[in-house]
Design a protein around this nucleic acid. Structure first.
Length: 376
DNA sequence: AACTCGTGGGC
DNA sequence: TGCCCAAGAGT
């Protein structure tokens, strides 16, 4: 701290003073986790807020707190219930880590140091610093996406944000600006500034309390900072999904394995991708719904003796997963409505017909097992 | 260091 | 519509 270069202050209060004055008037003071601002509530909110916007989190947080008012409530609850309340929020490893950390804290107490917070699963540098500042009003330097953007613009850092050297530079700048008092308010203030004024696009520099010494504004680089490295093309992957449904429209649910995508959640089988990689790696079949456990009691008990197979396209964003959904409909009687993409088969014919369908091996294996297992 | 892991919204 | 990204962490 003492060896850091001095801040160049142009006439007037320094960075944190201007920011705090702005925060008192324009900042967000009514977020659910701010009243009351206990360590437990701040921790839960910070985990929910990882890569997730405030608007999205609020309802989840309120439902979560209604069910788990105290740390012990969360620690005592089964993981299933935590995952159920997390459903739809995404990044489900956060819920598993949250639950595991709750049990650690219920036994060992709530940490009050950076190192002890960092030791908890799901708590990294950013979250730990935010908790120390928000819940304990203790000096800590946060460097989340908002702070990186604000600092990169204010200091005119134009090297790629992905580089370790850039992160380090931004960290020291952020640390230099961090005051020694009002840590909770300052932390909220810098994030509010990034979220509402120094936004990624269309920054409102006219309403910014630190625009007077902003390098990006002075050099007309606001729209270009922070700089990013060119993106590598995202590869398209193939996947296969299954949708199993009875005549009444009831859907079979399966449970995904505890790790990996949608870990631990009860899902429609169509949301359990079997990747082409998996198929090649495990040609014998177990990778259908990657080692998922079929619900011991399905959401329906198939009674029919016919199966319909149809193919749909489903496209995922983010990692460009191209999926093929195999829709399997169980019916008591074969339907006359055959079309090229909707083919009906009596279940007892499946073993003979399957080899001709050209289905991915795990799917074919699943259907073969299915045909053989249900009292047919 | 590079990759994985969700979802919803902006433009 | 396609692409980018948002209070990151784990591997």
């Amino acid at each position: 701290m003492t060896n850091q270069p001095m801040v160049a202050v142009l006439n007037g209060p320094d960075f944190s003073e201007r920011l705090l004055a702005w925060f008192d008037v324009h900042g967000r003071h009514d977020l659910p986790w701010q009243k009351p601002r206990t360590a437990y509530r701040v921790w839960v909110s910070e985990v929910m807020l990882q890569q997730t916007q405030v608007v999205t989190v609020i309802d989840y947080f309120n439902r979560f707190m209604a069910r788990f008012p105290k740390l012990e409530d969360l620690a005592d609850a089964p993981l299933d219930e935590v995952l159920a309340l997390w459903s739809g929020l995404g990044y489900y490893a956060r819920a598993r880590n949250l639950h595991a950390a709750a049990r650690v804290m219920a036994a060992q107490g709530i940490p009050d140091s950076l190192a002890h917070w960092l030791a908890l699963p799901g708590v990294g540098a950013s979250t730990a610093a935010a908790i120390l500042a928000q819940a304990f009003d203790t000096p800590a330097t946060i460097l989340d996406g908002n702070v990186k953007r604000v600092m990169a613009r204010h200091a005119g850092i134009n090297t790629p944000i992905e580089q370790a050297a850039t992160i380090q530079a931004l960290y020291y700048i952020a640390k230099r600006h961090t005051p020694s008092t009002r840590l909770a308010d300052y932390t909220q203030a810098i994030m509010d500034l990034g979220a509402t004024v120094c936004t990624r696009s269309q920054a409102n520099c006219a309403g910014c309390p630190v625009s007077q010494d902003c390098v990006a504004l002075k050099t007309d680089q606001v729209a270009h900072l922070p700089a990013r490295r060119a993106r590598k093309p995202i590869p398209t992957r193939q996947a296969v999904f299954i949708h199993l449904e009875d005549e009444a429209g009831r859907i079979m649910l399966i449970r995904r394995p505890p790790s990996g995508i949608w870990g631990g959640l009860w899902c429609l089988p169509e949301y359990t991708p079997v990747r082409a990689d998996d198929i090649e790696a495990a040609p014998s079949a177990d990778c259908l719904a990657p080692r998922a456990t079929v619900l011991s009691k399905w959401s329906f008990a198939p009674q029919g003796d016919a199966v319909q197979v149809a193919t749909f396209e489903h496209r995922f964003t983010h990692y460009q997963l191209t999926a093929c959904i195999e829709r399997v409909r169980v019916a008591a009687h074969a339907s006359p409505q055959d079309t090229p993409d909707r083919r009906w088969f009596h279940r007892h014919d499946l073993p003979e017909v399957l080899p001709q369908l050209g289905l991915p091996r795990p799917i074919a294996r699943f259907l073969a097992d299915y045909a053989a297992s249900k009292g047919g």
